[in-house]
Amino acid sequence: MESFQAMLHMGGYGGYVWPAYGVGIAVLVLVLALSLSSARKAEAELEVLQQTRRARRGKDSESQE
């Protein structure tokens, strides 16, 4: 427990060291989350479009027969 407090204290620089790491992790996680969600969103949208197109093509070829 004592070492945990020493860790938080960081030889008096805890107020500078911990925010640096905190913001660092927050920024990296944020960029990752945004990139992941944009990839998922765009790929889902493409999937829907391609499916409707395939479905329509399927219908078209049926009616032609």
Binding site: L28, L32, S35, S38, A39, A42, E43, E45, L46
Partner: peptide, 22 residues
């Protein structure tokens, strides 16, 4: 980390481009 993000964002851009074309 940069390579992973590059792949994710590259995938998003390629998909968005295809959506635009369709």
């Amino acid at each position: 980390y940069w390579i992973s993000i590059l792949i994710l964002r590259g995938r998003a851009e390629i998909a968005a481009q295809k959506v635009r074309i369709i």
